[in-house]
Write a protein that binds this DNA or RNA. Sequence first.
DNA 1: AGTTGCACCTGGCTGC
DNA 2: TGCAGCCAGGTGCAAC
Length: 286
Amino acid sequence: MPELPEVETVRRGLEPVMVGARLDAVEQRRPDLRFPFPERFTERLTGLRVEALRRRAKYLIAELDGADVLVMHLGMSGSFRIEQARGTIPVAGAKNSQHDHVAFDLSTGVRIVYNDPRRFGFMQLIPRPEFSAHPLFNNIGIEPLGDEFDGQALAKLFAGKTSSLKAALLDQSLIAGLGNIYVCEALHRAGLSPRRAAASLVRSDGSPTKRATLLARLVREVLEEAVAAGGSSLRDHRKTDGALGYFQHSFRVYGREHEPCARCGGEVGRITQSGRATFYCGGCQR
DNA sequence: AGTTGCACCTGGCTGC
DNA sequence: TGCAGCCAGGTGCAAC
């Protein structure tokens, strides 16, 4: 599921429910997801109040009034659902509940359930002082929706890079939060081939080419549109309230192999780059 | 050092 | 209808 827009959508769904509430009980139904849960996970959380829910890259970060910060990653198939009091399970339903791995019972009577069939997600507790030095966060790139992200920033990141544009945009240590879908979409909007070398957007004096500036603008644009649409969702992804997102209907190349390109009428193709599918139009992406 | 490939796990879809 | 094979939004780490 979840690239930056989906994680942001989840954050916005959970924030009004969780912030200000206390974690009256935490249920952990298995010892691990992608990684083992932290030692004494439930005990360390129980009784704490959620002070803020932030996002960095594809991580959700719950600030608590205790020693630790709760970091959550949705992996490929993680989702949250919000249940009202009295244990009703309205939307996502029983079919999938074998993959409910964590539940937070809030002081407001609301229950937040984390479901993750593939278990590529994880939860970590990081002592507050160690947070920014933690391996999860000490090598993470620039936020593509932040003020500093522009052609100049892109040029600085891509200078000297021999890897492809596709690989460079996916590299979380350069830009944080882009995934396979939005990289394909942004490159199509910018008319840039995913195979082009990342450094080809940098002039010899280190300044950005026009294409670098354009790409930065269009990365931001596609992410903003997706966030505004409530994130996209494919297959098993559901928003926190269980409703499906709509941006998936707006994909211009992703998942559209053999379909005509909306811009030039050429055929959308599919190649494999570093083991992942890349969708692009050879007609107008150069 | 930088870059690439694979493993992790389950479910859904396709094609026989 | 059944089932084998393939594919999936992410990331860490091993191997070039």
